[in-house]
Amino acid sequence: MALSADESARLANLLGQYGDQIVKRWTDNVSSSLAGRLSTAELSRQIQELHTSLRAALDQRAVGLFDEVAVELRAVLSELSRARARQGFTATETAISVFALKDALLEHIDVSGAGPEVMRDYVAFTGLIDEMGLLTFETYANAREELVADQAEQLLELSTPVVKIWEGVVAVPLVGTLDSARAQVVMERLLQTLVDTGSPYAIIDITGVPAVDTQVAQHVLKTVVAARLMGADCIISGIRPQIAQTIVSLGIEFGDIVTKASLADALRHALRLQGIETARRTGRREA
């Protein structure tokens, strides 16, 4: 509990008595820290809203931020920090929006010649403000984490296309680092496409994979084995010179899996296995 009921009443009184001045001073403090990246109208609306909900909570004798009657205040704080997180403000800038209230309050507390009770009040008030600041910080962190999680999911969706490049041949161009989650998605998509298109050949192209370590190789091998179980053959293509050297020095064994240097070679191989020969039409033009 940050406050006693009496302190809560006195703070409510203070906020009511000097309401407009406190809001103005508070807004000024915050706007100087944000360096004009948020419009004054928007900022003062937010601060006014905070002030109103804080006062409403204290009027109901809230003794701390996690009091039942302070639910509205918590909602306003969360909303504020979520908005800040989305707009790209730093955590400090977000927290200052709350902490600036301390300075604004101090102006209206008569410290000179004040007794210990005034000091105690002020310490209690700032205790409450600290709680508010911490909540803001926590919500800010959560909002950012959600953002990161959303983006990771979108990236997963984006980066795993399975394309049919010939009758009976599908290809998966892998781009970016292959971790377990992505490998799983790639495997599921590829196998499903094999069933949907009835293709007996799949080409896994790793040109876009920046580095191949034992883990990546393991994922690729699993995919190949699963495809074989379903009755399709996999060809691995797009192995760059450095990657080939890494694979050999790591001692990764591809066994009897066909590997090709380029996607074109892999496609030609797959066509040949299907009994389709590719040949240049020589001499036609002259004739």
Binding site: M187, L191, A226
Partner: peptide, 8 residues
């Protein structure tokens, strides 16, 4: 596919 993945 699900069966193949599980077996692997």
């Amino acid at each position: 596919p699900a069966v193949a993945i599980t077996l692997v």
